[in-house]
C-alpha cells in the first residue's frame, strides 16, 4: 500500500508546506508504508507538478489538470480524492486552509476518521497531535484501513528538491454544480510566507493602532522577517486576518520569534511556542508572554522598536 500526498499550491507555485508533508510521508514509509505519490490538482498546474516531481522521496506525481479543480474548491477536490484514494493506505495534506477544507470530506465519504494536524509519526498507524490549543499532546492509533490526515508542516523538516519522479496525468473529471468561485483577495507582500519564515515579528494589542504596525516594518526588513499579529490585534482591526498567529490562525515555528506588545494568551502561545528563540517586548512585566520568552525586555515599545531597528 502506498501513500498519497495532496500538494498545496497557490499563485501557480508549489507551496513550501508540501515538502514538509512529504517528509511526514517519508517517516510513514520508513515505518512500513509504501511509495509516496503526490497529487497536484488545479487548472494550469504543469509547472507545479514539475516542482513536486523534484521533491525527494516522491515516486510519482499525479496531475489532475482541469477547470473544475481551479481554486481547489472542496466539493470537486474532495470527489477527486475519493476517486483516487483506493490503493492508498494513507492520504496526507498540509493543515493549510485547503487541506483542512477538503480532507474531512474524503474521510467522511470513505467512512473513516481523520487525524488533524499531526506533529509526529510514531508508527504506521500511530501519530501525535496537539489538542486543547497545544496544552496537551495526544498519541492516537487508527485502525481504519485508510488513514486520512492533515500534517502540521512546521513539525517536520522539509525534504530537499533533488529528486526526479515521473509525472502522470489523471483523467478523472468530476462534476461540480454546487459551488462557484467568485473572487480572491490575497494580501500582497514581498515578505516571506508567515508559516515558512525563519524570523517572525508579531504585534499585539499593545501596538495601539494599525498605523503603528509600520514600526515593525523596518525591523522585518533588516531581519528578512515575516510580520504576524495576535488575535487581539486582528480583532481590533490593526492587522489583516491572514497575519494571525495562534490556535485558530497560523502555527509558526521560526528560529526567532519576536512578540511585541503581546500579552501571551494561551491561544497565541499555541501558535508560536515551538519557535526556537522567543523574544518578548512588553511594558507589563507581569505579562504571561515572559514565561515562555528566552529573552524578555520590559519597556515602551514605541521607544524600544526604533532603537532595535537602528542597532540591527
Amino acid at each position: 500500500m502506498s501513500i498519497l500526498v495532496l500538494a498545496d499550491h497557490h499563485d501557480g507555485q508549489l507551496a513550501g508546506t508540501t515538502a514538509h508533508v512529504v517528509a511526514a510521508a517519508q517517516e510513514i514509509a520508513k515505518a512500513g508504508g509504501g511509495d509516496i505519490d503526490v497529487l497536484v490538482a488545479g487548472e494550469g498546474v504543469s509547472a507545479i507538478a514539475d516542482a513536486a516531481a523534484k521533491l525527494d522521496g516522491v515516486s510519482r506525481v499525479r496531475v489532475a489538470d482541469n477547470a473544475v479543480y481551479a481554486h481547489q474548491l472542496a466539493e470537486p477536490l474532495g470527489a477527486l480524492l475519493v476517486e483516487l484514494a483506493d490503493g492508498y493506505s494513507h492520504v496526507l495534506a498540509s493543515a493549510s486552509t485547503t487541506g483542512k477544507n477538503v480532507m474531512p470530506r474524503l474521510a467522511a465519504l470513505k467512512d473513516v476518521s481523520q487525524l488533524s494536524d499531526i506533529i509526529a509519526v510514531e508508527g504506521i498507524d500511530t501519530f501525535c497531535r496537539p489538542i486543547y490549543a497545544g496544552n496537551a499532546i495526544a498519541t492516537v492509533k487508527s485502525d481504519d484501513a485508510l488513514k486520512v490526515m492533515t500534517v502540521r508542516s512546521t513539525a517536520f523538516d522539509a525534504v530537499a528538491s533533488a529528486g526526479s519522479a515521473g509525472i502522470e496525468s489523471v483523467d478523472t473529471v468530476v462534476d461540480n454544480t454546487q459551488s462557484t468561485f467568485l473572487k480572491e483577495e490575497l494580501a500582497e507582500s514581498d515578505r516571506p510566507e508567515l508559516g515558512a519564515a525563519k524570523v517572525v515579528i508579531s504585534g499585539g494589542r499593545g501596538m495601539g493602532n494599525g498605523e503603528n504596525f509600520k514600526l515593525l516594518d523596518g525591523i522585518a526588513d533588516k531581519l528578512g522577517a515575516a510580520i504576524g499579529a495576535s488575535r487581539a490585534a486582528v480583532d481590533a482591526g490593526y492587522a489583516h486576518n491572514d497575519m494571525q498567529v495562534g490556535q485558530t490562525g497560523k502555527i509558526v515555528a521560526p528560529d526567532l520569534y519576536i512578540a511585541v506588545g503581546i500579552s501571551g494568551a494561551i491561544q497565541h502561545l499555541a501558535g508560536m511556542k515551538d519557535s526556537k528563540v522567543i523574544v518578548a517586548i512588553n511594558q507589563d512585566e507581569e505579562a504571561p508572554i515572559f514565561q515562555v520568552a528566552d529573552y524578555g525586555l520590559v519597556g515602551d515599545l514605541f521607544e524600544v522598536l526604533p532603537e532595535l531597528e537602528s542597532k540591527l
Binding site: 481554486h71 459551488s179 467568485l182 473572487k183 480572491e184 483577495e185 490575497l186 508559516g195 491572514d242 497560523k250
Partner: peptide
Amino acid sequence: EIDGGLQSVEL
C-alpha cells in the same frame, strides 16, 4: 478566511 487572505464562493 484562507491562508493568503480571503476567498469568496457562491453555494
